[in-house]
């Protein structure tokens, strides 16, 4: 079954070879530094199918965060092309990128990055406000539903500072899902959590992936591999290994 969502085809059939949700073609990213150009990504070619749960792994400095940033339209490639669904991400302006990101990508950060003056529900609603595809009268109820989905509905009207790290990360995941994006990108989402909370967050990812969400997680935590359906290893800006689970 294929659902069309936010202009991007979303499939529950992970085995279909025809449905490349994300495609990176010869992506190069070079940073200009005082000591000269630094190649963060060196000719990355990668295709990710809809419904995959991909773990991007590698040591510090391997280029995995740069990879995620380029995928999310947070950073631009020096060369190469990135397509997400039918959208050529590399050619969008900042404004178009912001709008595209809001509709198509859910982002989860290591340090949660909830806005401290907004309540948890408002943090979720703010993402809907920016994009505007959810009608205004439905936003709060949708926010509460998402918070219920991640298990923190009772914290909806509290400020982020009064929540634990795990609760804040769940709120951040609810926010990432606010506009029902087909892709969720997470940068070290469990890096700042304790063992128990880390496990519960990964189980939540697993559950969301099972519901059809494409998830790409940048991590150096080994336990993500247990849940991921595919593992891409980066070393010095090159993909050195790309393994799919049976």
């Amino acid at each position: 079954m294929i659902k069309v969502k936010n202009g991007i085809k979303k499939s529950n059939n992970q085995s279909s070879n025809e449905e490349h949700l994300i495609e990176l073609h010869k992506v190069i990213k070079t940073y200009e530094t005082p000591s000269g150009p630094f190649p963060a990504l060196q000719g990355i070619n990668l295709r990710i199918q809809s419904g995959e749960f991909v773990a991007i792994v590698g040591k510090s400095g391997s280029g995995k965060t740069t990879f995620l940033n380029i995928l999310a339209g947070i950073d631009r490639p020096t060369k190469g092309e990135i397509s997400v669904g039918s959208t050529p991400v590399h050619s969008l302006s900042e404004s178009q990128l912001a709008e595209w990101r809001g509709r198509s990508i859910g982002l989860v950060f290591q340090f949660f990055q909830l806005l401290p003056t907004l309540t948890i529900a408002e943090n979720v609603m703010l993402a809907m406000d920016f994009v505007g595809i959810i009608p205004a009268p439905e936003r709060r109820s949708r926010a509460l539903k998402l918070l219920d989905q991640v298990g923190i509905k009772d914290q909806a009207d509290k400020l982020p500072a009064s929540l634990s790290g795990g609760q804040q990360q769940r709120a951040a995941i609810a926010r990432a899902l606010a506009n029902n994006p087909p892709i969720l990108l997470a940068d070290e989402p469990t890096g700042n959590l304790d063992e128990h909370t880390r496990k519960s967050v990964l189980e939540l990812f697993d559950k969301l992936n099972a519901e059809g969400l494409t998830i790409i997680v940048v991590t150096h935590e080994r336990d993500v591999n247990f849940y991921a359906s595919r593992q891409v290893t980066l070393i010095d800006g090159h993909i050195t290994n790309d393994t799919k689970k049976g």
């Binding site: 912001a98 809001g102 982002l107 990055q113 806005l115 703010l126 920016f130 994009v131 990432a176 506009n179």
Partner: peptide, 16 residues
């Protein structure tokens, strides 16, 4: 700065 970045990351356009 980070908050503004987060806003942009979750879909806020520069005008917002």
């Amino acid at each position: 700065t980070r908050e503004l970045g987060v806003m942009s990351a979750i879909g806020a356009r520069p005008a917002m």
